[in-house]
Nucleic acid binder design. Sequence first.
RNA 1: GCGCAGGUGGCAGAGCGGUCAAUUGCAUCAGACUGUAAAUCUGACGCCUUUAUGGCUACGAAGGUUCGAAUCCUUCCCUGCGCA
Length: 299
Amino acid sequence: MGQEGKKLLVIVGPTASGKSALAVAVAKKLNGEVVSADSRQVYRGLEIGSNYPTKTELKAVPHHLVGFVDPKKTFTVAEYQKKARKAIKDIGKRHKLPILVGGTVFYIQAVVDGIVMPEVPPDETLRRKLETRSTGELADILRQKDKRRWETIDRRNPRRLIRAIEIAKALGKIPALQSNPMPAEVVMIGIDPEKNILKKAVEKRSRAMIQRNFIREVKMLLQNDVKEEKIRELGFEYQIALRYLKGEIKSKRELADAITKMTLKYVKRQMTWFKRDRRIHWSRDKKEAFDYARKFHYH
RNA sequence: GCGCAGGUGGCAGAGCGGUCAAUUGCAUCAGACUGUAAAUCUGACGCCUUUAUGGCUACGAAGGUUCGAAUCCUUCCCUGCGCA
């Protein structure tokens, strides 16, 4: 990598904490550009369900990695890692501040710490075959192929086991974990609102989503021949919306409640991940976080 | 008022004489995380403690039967449905 892009600002926080708005505010103030770190915003046509930045925000500040993947395709962290790093580098070349924002912690980690992913693309045929096996059987297969990885892997997690076997099959064994951190001064700031404030924000967000006609967005995906199975993979909002369309969920109110409930659950998982990253400087709200970002930039 | 069905841990809902502090799901809490990551997976979840093949209190209430009851009997209270 070049000498450009010496700084990288990362903004994290749970869903509905106000990350996107903060990112835009900071970008305006500090002459930056935003790179989204959201596993679903990458797909085209998920404006509402994945909560794209608003039109005004998109106009105010350049955003990257939003809405550029065909929703019929499957996008993965490895691709994200490459694209995001390139985007960050390019922003640096333009002498602007790259701001990485999002709630998908794995994506952020992939960019910042640069976990080296084995170059083995997903093998759908193999996966389908292995999916019929029990976790015990999968663990046995892995043990035969790579005992070292077998010792450390979560042996009850079929998805992990399958991926490990996939790699072992292609490469002989799983390479040791390596990382290739971002060559930049990275500062991570997080917004962690009080629990009840966040809860209210999540509720509001769910309602707004439905008011903005989220259901129509889902119908549109169906019309565009995105398979139901694939739509379900786009996140729980989409799963819930499909249930609504099938009549399993009767009212819009019930729909909003279901989305809120799932979002809150997700927030918990996000926080579990955030908590262990000691690099993050936490703030209670946007303003505090904003001030911190400015300090970082001018120091 | 009579008939029938019920009252179980935060909720739903199993259990119908011992192996029941009580299956399971949800909710809650904690955690993991090497190309699906809003995914996938794990643990805890009555109370107490010296954490144990430990103690205590518990399955609407009160009595009773029994070596032993969430489980059987009696009465009472409450809920739903049916009939008056």
